[in-house]
Design a binder for these strands. Structure first.
Lengths: 337, 337
DNA sequence: TTGTATGCGTTATCAG
DNA sequence: CTGATAACGCATACAA
């Protein structure tokens, strides 16, 4: 492992000169620079980012905090696609990504700021955190820049990227009301998810616009879980045969609802219209193909990293990025009989 | 940002003592240790891993080198599931993960060992690299420990984890021959993938055991790409109506073949039996559900990280981990008519 | 244009 | 049991 010291010795100059030569300072003779460079190559030198970080107190590293990097997320490719976006965006800017995967056990052992300062990350991107996650409060107070995905907190050092979930839900439900449905249920996630709150709002909003009274007992919480959604839907539709359509806050849950419909002998879309949310890969492979609201996950990640790096570089940009989403009409929706 | 220096000042001791107290050395008075600890807490101290790394020349970091962390991999969750396994395994052992995503452009700019030494990673896991990847030669010569996934290179500092691809292909084809098929094609990936070579071997092996002559023109290369596989299959089956079954080296390609069959009006499985490889999520959602060979991707990642860490810790373990895979019989295979 | 000296935060060596 | 001091590899203020 050659160091600048070794190069200095061989090249017959001081370490200072080596450092400056290699870092492109212009106050160094081009001839010596050339010599130093060739020596560096000869010695197969590569700079030690650790040492450099220490002295510059800059690591060029951003932390990626995913609440659960687990197989449970394997079906919806949510986390993965976001990561791809983050990765592309940040590697463009020369930042490396370090993976912080935590669970509640680890959270107790190590606070958010400890985690960050320990690794000296310059900023962090958080994804998949619930609204009551203890780290969230820390983020606000902390002075290390952070961008949240799908959690709407804004501040001096914190921004977020999300999609317009109220709008997304509304176009989904509007599609249903336009088709003539009046009794529309909603399979929501859980109250700790901001997106769930928003989507419920969008659902209500569209009901109101269509002059349909909101009914509390038409809202179910499937916890974003396929099985759970299936079970809930199974018993729900037995009790509520008047319901002809359901809006689901995730495609995974929509899949669960489809299974329930199958078990109940309800024909989709003739007897039951279903619209999902996310546009996961599976959505276009199931039969019938799922009508859903598309979110550009890659773009969310990409923009998140971009925002963070802008913040790090001191660019005065909007700390709030809202992306569009769009309705993808496929085969699970139709007019009520 | 409090440092041990600050603590030392407040606690009225030297930095040495602080360091030792905090790191649990036993040659420090328990009373002073208690005092130091309380001061540390008070100052909200967290150790600077960068500084520590510099002096110990240990970063407790392993590099994850994925040839392409891209959306193209979003359908098969291959990379993601492997990452989950790696992450769980390595975080158990206190290693952090740093993401190196490269493409050929970056590879030209920076060599493998430069990449590693720069970030001072202690070891690396590589996934998704082709057999002719320039980094691969470097890995062998390099003295930094590395474990490859699905690339069978073994050495002083390099190990690998893979599944038994010969066996996997063989059980797939055996399933077909057992059903009575005699004219069996293979949709392989490409020659730069070791797994393709192995699976071809398995295919041939089983043909031989079933006394079926191997036919060169029954092997197609779909480049692990759904569209490409579809196109190739589309023209192939027009020319070769005698073929009643096909073994695909990936589920994605099997999906492509299914589309081709649909376009050609070939009924699956009655007129054409298809078996895939990977057991991706989609496999059980398509109609008919895909018969395939399951690989435990999570486990591959988990074992890879475990092997690497064993190597790092100097444990004398086998540098070669081969996992089982198993045939999952679903609905795309049947006896030939 | 180049070199000397200093420090980043930590651990290790050695002496007390 | 504790404290100076050096060292890790690099960058930078200042001097020459």
């Amino acid at each position: 492992m050659a160091t600048i010291k070794d190069i200095a010795k061989v090249a017959g100059v001081s370490v200072t000169t080596v450092s400056r030569a290699l870092n492109g300072y212009d106050d160094v003779n081009e001839k010596t620079r050339a010599r130093i460079k060739s020596v560096a190559e000869e010695l197969n030198y590569s700079p030690n980012a650790v040492a450099r970080s220490l002295v510059k107190s800059k690591t060029e590293t951003i932390g990626l905090l995913v609440s659960e990097l687990s197989l449970s997320g394997a079906k919806d490719m949510f986390t993965y696609e976001i990561m791809c976006g983050i990765n592309d965006s940040s590697s463009n800017k020369g930042f490396d990504l370090i993976l912080f995967s935590t669970n509640s056990a680890k959270q107790k052992a190590k606070s958010y700021s400890q985690l960050c300062r320990e690794r000296q990350v310059e900023g962090v991107i958080m994804q998949g955190v619930k609204i009551d996650d203890p780290y969230l409060i820390e983020v606000i107070d902390s002075n290390i820049p952070c961008v949240l995905i799908d959690v709407e907190i804004e501040g001096e050092n914190v921004g977020y990227v999300s999609t317009d979930n109220v709008f997304g839900a509304q176009i989904a439900v509007k599609h249903l009301t336009n088709l003539g449905h009046r009794n529309i249920a909603i399979m929501n996630g859980h109250d700790q998810a901001l997106v769930s709150q928003r989507r419920l709002t969008g659902y209500k909003k569209q009901l109101e616009e269509a002059s349909i009274p909101f009914q509390e007992n038409y809202v179910l919480n499937g916890n974003f879980n396929e099985q759970q959604a299936e079970e809930m839907a199974y018993s729900f539709f037995q009790e509520r045969p008047e319901v002809t359509a359901i809006f689901c806050a995730s495609d995974l849950m929509a899949l669960g609802v489809m299974s329930a419909a199958k078990r109940l002998g309800l024909k989709v879309p003739d007897e039951l219209s279903i619209v999902g949310y996310d546009n996961i890969t599976l959505a276009q492979y199931v039969q019938p193909q799922l009508t859903t609201v598309d979110q550009d996950k890659y773009q969310m990640g990409y923009k998140a990293a971009k925002l963070l790096i802008d913040m790090l570089e001191g660019n005065k940009t909007n700390r709030k990025v809202i992306l569009d989403n769009q309705l993808i009409i496929r085969e699970t929706t139709a007019e009520p009989k």
